[in-house]
Design a protein around this nucleic acid. Structure first.
Length: 726
DNA sequence: CTAGTCAGGCTTTTT
DNA sequence: GCCTGACTAG
């Protein structure tokens, strides 16, 4: 059977489009990845292109794996295994390892993740005697990262304010620290490769010759560095094939720029552009909902998505009282669906804007005795215990890595505190050698000129001995054996297993890490560390457990579920507070909402909470503006009305949990109504006021009606009558 | 040097 | 509400 037989005519056309540059613009669920993989297979089977001449890049390991699986299907394992397929970062990491001598870094460099980076920035800030309060390392790191994504090195960085001048100085220092530690950060991986290609045309040519065909998935998520990389690689053969959906661009904050799509049109004048509008995932109701939300964004090609799947079920909205009620409602619905046979637990996904929102859901799931799959949150590789052990391994791999040394030299505590560590670093600095060189010679040299007291000297010597033992193991031991040795001899095991439940959990995480190491039996330490730095939690999402998935909207991209709950639809959450004063960011929030909506195949729930506790503060919230965009005829029942009857006890529960009413700001008028007051409405019947606030020249009253649930009313309109108190 | 307490700030989102 | 950094007693 021909590989193209499984495609529809539009997709077929996209796949077989000209040899030159091709851009496929397509909505969600249109088979973008399928088109991309078929394009690869088409080149191999119909054009006799050698698979190893093809580079296909994506953004997540998960997407890469999915692509690989499809290609194994289409081409067979051996041919599929030949092509270069992976994330931008992993691909660059490999190129850098191969070309290390030309980059001026050793082949066994390490990759620093976000928390390592932050440590480096802090170190740089301290070295420059700057005030950490005023120059917050987080903010400086963001600025550095932004510069790197724009391919601006510390020397090209042109400060336009005093603050930026500080950034420039930290940036310079930051790069120097990375360099002495033989380390790259994520952004360096990309920037260094573009630099390498710029400085060494012969090397660029080598890769241009090797990769005659370049394919990019999720092209709208490329940043400047990635875009330049694509331009460099395709400059000679111009065989570029991209798939993109500008409406799903949700990574602006990490430098992604969907305008790269229009840059592509300018840079490749003979670009073939193909639009795919058929959706194979969702019902028409869901697609219409998505469109109603996304159409408000400017500067986009309006795609009218259609499906042959029919109208489908209406969108369900629910207004919960607070985040706990929200979670309980979701659980009730999921259990109901499973009980009715309408959906299995595993078909359901609960999505939210921020990781912090997962807590209420986790609590409720645990209470209900329902298993769940959690994506993200405290990411596995960011956990303290995992980072500690990886730092040990990194230090063994590269003893000059001072960041890892600082992390583990006193973990678990072994009497080497701030002071001793500071002394060690100073001695090393003065002699211009890595701290490890001082440590290594310490026990041998007896009474040298080093400033350590006997106690500190002994502690340092013990640590050095331990390190030497591990270093001797590296030649003939596997990663697992090394890890076991570290866990035992460093006494990390007894340190973490303190008898508490949390300790056991941490130990279990370490055993999981050990399991990962065991999987790659003949992998060297170098390879293991490189791999570990570039994977993320979403990549390891297993779908063999029948349990609902909890995940952020960002993590949901590229996935699909029969039943989707989008939660926290409140102003300040989705859209997020931080987007209020920037139209570009607000547009991105909208796209994020759009991504969430279009993950659903059959059933979509849009949920909000009336009150939400965040940062220990409970506050009333307004419904998300995105809710207003959904056409009423697509909604099940009346919008904004609770799906269940509100009882008297609910009302008093709600009322009693309200914080003391705040005084209306800068308003001299007094509200007519106040929380807890019983009122009567000609149509809605009797209810209890939950909140009342003055609004311009009117008063907005929030009332819980016995029959209808929560309503927001304007006092002037809604002929509300106060009832006699008790 | 460690381990404890306390105040302050803060989180969008991730390769 | 939770983490980090500063401070203090042993």
């Amino acid at each position: 059977m021909d590989i193209l037989d499984r495609l529809n005519p539009r997709q077929h056309q996209a796949v077989t489009a000209s040899d030159g540059p091709v851009l496929v613009l397509a909505g969600p669920g249109s088979g973008k990845t399928r088109v991309l993989t078929h394009r690869v297979a088409y080149l191999v089977t119909h054009h006799d292109v050698y698979p190893w001449r093809i580079m296909a890049v994506t953004f997540t390991n998960k997407a890469a794996r999915e692509m690989r699986e499809r290609l194994v299907d289409l081409l067979g394992a051996s041919r599929a295994g030949e092509l270069t397929l992976g994330t931008f970062h992993a691909t660059c990491a490999r190129i850098l390892r191969r070309e290390a001598p030309h980059v001026g870094i050793s082949r066994d460099y390490v990759i620093f993740d976000t928390s390592d980076q932050l440590n480096v920035v802090k170190k740089a800030v301290r070295e420059l005697n700057l005030d950490e309060k005023k120059y917050r390392p987080r903010a400086i790191l963001n600025a550095i990262s932004r510069a790197k994504n724009e391919l601006i090195g510390p020397l090209e960085y042109k400060p336009e304010s005093y603050y930026e001048e500080v950034v420039r100085r930290v940036y310079e220092r930051y790069q120097a620290i990375l360099h002495t530690n033989n380390a790259f950060d994520f952004d360096d991986l990309l920037m260094s490769v573009t630099r390498l290609f710029d400085d060494h045309p012969d090397i660029l040519e080598k890769y241009q010759e090797k990769y005659r065909y370049v394919l990019v998935d999720e092209f709208q998520d490329t940043n400047m560095a990635q875009y330049v990389l694509v331009l460099q690689l395709t400059a000679r053969w111009r065989n570029l094939f991209c798939v993109a959906d500008e409406d799903q661009s949700i990574y602006r904050w990490r430098g992604a720029d969907y305008r790269n799509i229009s840059r592509l049109r300018d840079d490749f004048e003979n670009l073939t552009q193909i639009v795919l509008e058929q959706n194979y995932r969702s019902t028409q109701t869901i697609l219409d909902t998505g469109r109603a939300i996304i159409r408000h964004n400017r500067n986009r090609v309006d795609k009218s998505l259609f499906t042959e799947r029919g109208q489908g079920a209406k969108i369900v909205t629910y207004e919960a009282f607070d985040e706990n009620d929200e979670a309980q409602y979701v659980i009730d619905q999921i259990m109901g669906l499973q009980a009715r046979g309408a959906a299995r637990y595993g078909d359901c996904a609960v999505m939210y804007r921020t990781n912090a929102q997962s807590r209420a859901f986790e609590d409720a799931f645990i209470r209900a005795g329902l298993p769940y799959k959690l994506v993200g949150a405290t990411r596995f590789y960011a956990r303290r215990e995992v980072k500690d052990i990886l730092a040990y391994l990194r230090l063994i791999h590269n003893p000059t890595d001072s960041v890892s040394l600082a992390r583990v030299i006193n973990t678990p505590t072994r009497g080497i505190g701030q002071k001793t560590l500071g002394q060690l670093e100073r001695v090393a600095d003065k002699r211009g050698v890595p701290a490890w060189d001082i440590l290594r010679e310490l026990d041998r040299s007896g009474r040298d000129a080093s400033p350590f007291g006997t106690r500190a000297r002994k502690a340092l010597g013990t640590f050095a001995m331990m390190m030497k033992g591990w270093l001797a193991l590296t030649d003939h031991s596997s990663v697992v054996q090394l890890m076991d040795a570290v866990l035992e001899q460093s006494e990390y095991r007894s340190y973490i297993l303190d008898g508490t439940e949390e300790g056991q959990e941490r130990w279990d995480n370490l055993m999981e890490l050990r399991g990962v190491a065991a999987e790659y039996e003949d992998m060297t330490l170098t390879e293991f560390l490189a791999d570990v730095a570039l994977v993320s939690d979403v990549d390891n999402l297993s779908d063999d457990v029948n349990a609902p998935t909890l995940l952020t909207l960002h993590a949901a991209k590229g996935l699909e579920f029969p039943v989707v709950f989008i939660t926290g639809l409140e102003e300040g959450i989705l859209p997020h507070q931080r987007s209020f004063d920037d139209p570009e960011e607000m547009a991105e929030e909208r796209r994020l909402m759009y991504v969430g909506v279009t993950r659903a195949k059959d059933l979509l729930y849009l949920i909000r909470a009336f009150r939400r506790t965040s940062r220990g503060q409970s506050d009333v919230s307004d419904p998300s503006r995105f809710l207003d965009d959904v056409p009423k005829e697509l909604l099940k029942g009346r919008p904004g009305v609770s799906g269940r009857r509100v009882t008297q006890s609910d009302a008093s529960r709600w009322r009693s949990s309200l914080s003391p009413r705040r005084e209306p700001k800068r308003e001299s008028r007094q509200p007519q109504f106040r929380a807890g007051q019983r009122v009567h409405h000609p149509q809605f019947g009797e209810g209890i006021v939950v909140e009342s606030k003055l609004q311009r020249d009117d008063e907005q009253v929030t009332v819980v009606f016995e029959e209808l649930g929560i309503k927001r009313l304007l006092a002037s309109f809604a002929k509300l009558k106060p009832l006699k108190d008790q």
